[in-house]
Simulated assay, not measured.
Amino acid sequence: MKLQKQETAEKEDELEDVSRRLNTLLAERVNQLEQYQSEFFSRLRNILATNENIRVVGDRFLLPSELLFASGSAQLGDEGKSELDKLAEVLLDVVAAIPGDIDWILRIDGHTDLIPINTQQFPSNWELSTARAVAVVRYLAAQGVPERRMVAAGFGEFFPVASGTTPDALQKNRRIELKLTDR
């Protein structure tokens, strides 16, 4: 019985040690990703700073839909492609420096205002916001950004950044958000 208690205590000590080492490794990886996020964020902020329409909120870039798409459309316009070309250039530079064993993604979120859309192509704001996010992902993939490192999500009108129905509030809520994060 005493031997069994001793073996159990030794196993628990071993497990605790393994757990400590794993937590340390995980923390190191998180710190590494945060360094690349910071570099990406800083470089992108400098490059996109000339466009007063692009806002930075926390760890996300918010691009107004009007910059990328015509009203009610998920087809990228020339001005939007130009801005996405700048983004792709920075992203590809940063991607080249991120070690392969860091599991990161670029999350592209589509958002609409609260005015409902109901067309054959877009029966709701969810479809429109998702199609816009997918259009950005496809465009960035065509510029060489690894497809397996991107995700598109559509949020419709459900996560506004501005309240109310003023033209300014509606415009702020129609956006694409970009975030470099862990998977």
Rank of each mutant, 00 (worst) to 15 (best):
S71I: 14
E52Q: 14
E10C: 08
D103F: 12
D13G: 15
D93V: 07
S42V: 03
V18I: 15
N31F: 07
N23Y: 06
E66P: 02
L33H: 00
S65E: 10
L67I: 06
L15A: 12
G100N: 10
I54Q: 07
Q6V: 15
E28S: 13
V57G: 05
L84K: 04
R43S: 09
S73H: 06
V90I: 11
G110T: 07
Q32S: 15
L26P: 04
S82F: 09
F41I: 05
L92K: 07
Q32L: 10
S73G: 05
G77A: 07
S42L: 01
F69D: 03
F40M: 13
S65R: 12
S73Y: 05
L84S: 01
I98G: 07
E39T: 15
D78V: 11
R43E: 14
V56T: 04
R29N: 14
K86T: 03
L106S: 02
D85S: 03
L33T: 08
S73E: 10
R43P: 06
S73P: 04
G80Q: 04
D109I: 07
I105V: 11
G100I: 05
L106T: 01
Q4L: 12
K86L: 09
K81V: 02
L48E: 00
L67S: 05
V90G: 01
L26C: 13
L44A: 04
R45S: 15
D85F: 01
L48R: 03
F40W: 14
E66W: 11
D85W: 02
I54C: 02
E79S: 13
A70F: 04
I105G: 06
D17I: 10
R45Q: 12
V90W: 01
G72A: 06
R29G: 06
I108T: 04
L22V: 11
I102G: 11
L15K: 15
E52W: 04
G110P: 09
N31C: 12
D93P: 03
G100W: 03
V90S: 02
L25D: 13
D109V: 00
L84P: 06
P99Q: 11
G110W: 02
D85V: 00
R45W: 04
Q35T: 14
D78N: 11
D78Q: 01
R43H: 07
L76H: 05
K2V: 14
N31W: 09
E16L: 13
L92D: 10
V30D: 14
D59V: 08
T24I: 11
I54W: 00
D101Q: 11
L87S: 03
V95F: 15
L84T: 01
N51E: 15
E39N: 13
I54H: 01
E83D: 07
